[in-house]
Structure formats: structure tokens, C-alpha cells
Amino acid sequence: MEQLVSVVIRGEQYTIRSAEDPAYVRRVAEYVDAKLDGVVKGSQSLPPTKAIVLASLHIVDELFKVEGERERSEGLAATRLGNLSALLGTVLEERASGPEGGGSGVQS
């Protein structure tokens, strides 16, 4: 269910229509506000549009880096799972062809 959430960014109030939790929307707005503050503090004479573009670039850079790290982590997890699966297959084959010969590996 969409609702209206009031946020303040760089001293300007905005009303955001969102289906997200209002606390989440406020947190996002606070993050954007902090990024803009960081850009503006670096250059007080920066026009607002340029500050918005630079803050957006910083945010997207963070997003891309996190996405890259997630992809690397997923690849590493997939590799490890593949290695474990192969190892398990080897162990199961060895048990099946062990001294009891082709048994289920279950002993009574």
C-alpha cells in the first residue's frame, strides 16, 4: 500500500509516495542528504545541479562496487559448493565400491 512520506534533503521538504516502510524512505533520504552535504562541503560554490550529479555519481559508484563484491562472493560460493559436491561424490563412490562391495553404505 502506497503512502506519503515527508523527507528533508538539503533543507528542502519533499513528499515521497512509496510502498516502502516510511522509516526506510527516511533512511534513504538521509543517505542522499549526507552525500550531498559531503559534495557541497568540498566546494561551497558548486551549483546545486552539479552537486546532485556528483552525489549521484558517488552513490552509483558505491552501488557498483557492492554489486561487484556480491558477484565475486556468489562466484566463490558456487565454486566452493561445486568442490564440496565433487568431494562428496568421490566419498560416496568410494563407500559404494568399498570392501563390502556395492552396498548402500548403511550397516546394521
Rank of each mutant, 00 (worst) to 15 (best):
L46F: 00
A78R: 13
E94W: 09
A23V: 09
A96V: 09
T49D: 08
S104M: 14
S18A: 12
R10M: 15
Q13L: 00
S6Y: 00
T49H: 06
D33E: 11
S56M: 03
L84R: 11
E30G: 07
L92A: 07
Q13D: 08
K65C: 06
E94T: 10
T90A: 10
D33I: 09
L4Y: 04
P47Y: 02
L63E: 07
G103S: 11
R26V: 15
T90H: 07
R26W: 08
A77F: 13
D21A: 10
A34D: 05
Q13M: 05
T79R: 13
T15M: 08
A19M: 02
L92N: 02
R26F: 08
L4N: 05
L63P: 05
E74R: 12
A86G: 13
S45E: 07
L63T: 04
D21N: 12
G105P: 14
I52V: 12
S6D: 09
L57C: 09
Y31C: 06
D37K: 14
E30L: 03
A77W: 12
E2I: 13
A96H: 14
A55H: 04
E69P: 08
L87H: 13
G75V: 00
G42W: 06
E62N: 10
V39Y: 01
R17C: 01
D21S: 04
S108Q: 00
V40G: 02
E93K: 06
L36G: 01
G11F: 00
R27K: 13
D21G: 04
P99T: 08
V32I: 15
I52F: 02
L88V: 11
V40Q: 06
L92D: 06
L76E: 15
A29P: 03
T49Q: 07
E69N: 10
Q13P: 06
V28W: 03
V53F: 14
V8Y: 00
T90M: 10
I16K: 03
D33H: 13
D37F: 05
T49R: 05
V106R: 12
S56E: 01
V28E: 01
